[in-house]
Design a protein around this nucleic acid. Structure first.
Lengths: 123, 123
DNA sequence: ATAGATGCAAAGGGTTTGCACTTGA
DNA sequence: TCAAGTGCAAACCCTTTGCATCTAT
C-alpha cells in the first residue's frame, strides 16, 4: 500500500499529522481540498485506510461521535470530550494508576478512556 | 412515546433488560423473534430509540463495534471487549482509583473506560 | 510504458422513513 | 372506533468498490 507518492496522499497525511486534534473524514476532506480542490471522498477513505494499515494514524472513537483519526506516534494518552464545544482534547499521560483489574482468566491487552465534561474555554 | 403496550415492545424491552451483556440491534432482533417471529427490524430500531429517549436503556459504544444497549439502572461499571469472541462483558466497579485528573479549568462530568483483551472462555 | 492511484458513479451495509394494514385501549 | 404501532419496502447515509482515466516511476 501507498507505493507511490501523490499530492493527494501527501496532503491527506499532512492534514492529519499537523492537526492539533483528531479529525473525522469530513474534516480531512475539507482541509485537504484547500490544496487539492478536485479531491474525491473515495481517495480520502482509501488513504485513511492505508495510513491505518501502515500504522501511521490511529482511530479515535468517542462514543456518539463519528470516528476521528490522529497520528499514531503520540505518547500514551486519553481524550477529553467537551460536551459544550464538541471538541476533543488530548489528555497527557494515563489515568489508570495501576494495571486494570479484571476477573480471573481475563487478559487485558489495552484500554481506552474518555472523559466527558466542559473544557476551560467553555467554563 | 411508547403510549401503548404491545407484544413487540414488551419483548424487546425484556430481551435487553434480561441479557447479561449489552446487545446490539441484531442480537435484540434474533432474541425477540423467538417470541415474535414476524418482528421487523424497523420496530426494533423504533423501540430502542424510544427506550433511549425514555432513559430506560443506555448505549454502550465499543470502539470499532456496532453500538450495543443495556438497561440504564445498573451500578457504575465499565466494559471489557473480548477481541477473540467479540463479546462485551460488564466489569463491576470503577477502575479509576481517584477522581480523574484534568487540566485546570476542565470539569469532568463522566467517563468511559473500555478494556480490550481476551476473556476467560477464550484463553 | 505500465501498474498504481484518482475521480466519479454505482453498489453495499446499516438505519430511518412512508404507507397501508393491524391492533390496543 | 381509530390513532398508535407494525411490517414491508423504499429512501438515506456513510463507506467501499468498479472502472475508465491519469500519472509517478
Amino acid at each position: 500500500m501507498m507505493q507511490r507518492r501523490t499530492r493527494q496522499r501527501d496532503t491527506i497525511r499532512a492534514v492529519i499529522e499537523r492537526a492539533n486534534r483528531p479529525l473525522d473524514v469530513q474534516d480531512v476532506l475539507a482541509r485537504a481540498r484547500r490544496h487539492v480542490p478536485r479531491l474525491g471522498i473515495a481517495t480520502v477513505y482509501r488513504t485513511i485506510n492505508a495510513l491505518l494499515a501502515d500504522g501511521i494514524i490511529v482511530p479515535v472513537e468517542i462514543p456518539g461521535r463519528p470516528v476521528t483519526y490522529e497520528r499514531a506516534n503520540l505518547r500514551h494518552h486519553h481524550h477529553f470530550y467537551c460536551t459544550a464545544c464538541k471538541k476533543v482534547y488530548e489528555m497527557e499521560g494515563c489515568l489508570l494508576g495501576t494495571r486494570p483489574a479484571a476477573p480471573c482468566g481475563f487478559k487485558v491487552e489495552s484500554h481506552e478512556i474518555t472523559l466527558f465534561g466542559t473544557c476551560a474555554a467553555c467554563a
